[in-house]
Nucleic acid binder design. Structure first.
Lengths: 138, 138
DNA sequence: CATAAATGACACCTTGAGGTATTATATAAT
DNA sequence: ATTATATAATACCTCAAGGTGTCATTTATG
């Protein structure tokens, strides 16, 4: 595990939703997304179902079916996606991983580390799919 | 895997070396460190050997043996420890995990993300074992 | 209605991080 | 020299993330 790197699943979710945000009315099918993003095909299928369950996209089944973004792209923040895909996101509180940190006495890195995490949180909360939809995707 | 959290091994390394930095001349044995830090015993044994190979501590074998910090605690930076324990640390370049990011065109989060990572790097490079040796350790 | 083209469900495989068990080796003290 | 007490080496176990394979279900359309 390398520090400061999102999980593969998180990266995939960011890529998929950013791509689909390019046309928020369009119905995308899996093959089309696969062609563009090269996420492993069957894993992509599974992820699409998960993102549907999480409410970021809606799925239309049957022939000519597919997926589309469920809400205005300005309203979907990267932080919300991260939290849905990596539910433990908030668990990394202490720099040293101490369970009791900050209950009474904080560790010596506590304040400095809190600032960093707040900073990152602000970036993720301040960035919507509308902001990233024009990113390159390779 | 939760984002913004060091690996267990990294956390353990930080804890062990911070603790041992409290007395940089003392020879600590594994049981003593185990009593204080509660890192799983046999994993701790393995880690001590790795930290010895990495050069942060020196080991004295045989009866009355143990480990002690190998250099001045002001000279050992947290960044150096992280790099030794998590060699892939520098590999997390692109926010979206794109391999080709920034080769020609960077992703849309690239600059913002570089600033965050530089900030963290500066913290880790600017903090030595001497700075953290007084931290609580539970 | 039958078929083709799409998603859904579910079971299984693989790999690396974290953790455990056992035996070997080094050395101080008697 | 022998013994007790340290670390070193090596092989194995476990579990969750990431990835794969197969079959079921839904629905537009001829």
């Amino acid at each position: 595990m390398s520090f400061m790197k999102f999980s593969k699943t998180t990266e995939y979710a960011f890529r998929i939703l950013s791509f689909m945000a390019q046309d928020e009315t369009k119905l995308y099918n899996v093959d089309e997304i696969f062609e563009k993003l090269r996420v492993p095909y069957r894993y992509l299928r599974k992820l699409m179902t998960n993102l549907t369950r999480s409410g970021f996209i809606v799925s239309i089944q049957g022939k000519n079916g597919g997926y589309k973004i469920s809400r205005k792209t300005e309203e979907i923040r990267l932080l919300e996606i991260l939290q849905a895909v990596d539910p433990e996101y908030l668990s990394g509180k202490c720099f040293f991983g101490f369970d009791n940190c900050a209950l009474q006495v904080p560790c010596i890195m506590h304040d400095q580390w809190t600032i960093v995490r707040t900073n990152i949180n602000n970036i993720l909360a301040g960035t919507s799919l509308a902001d990233v939809k024009q990113t390159k995707n390779d």
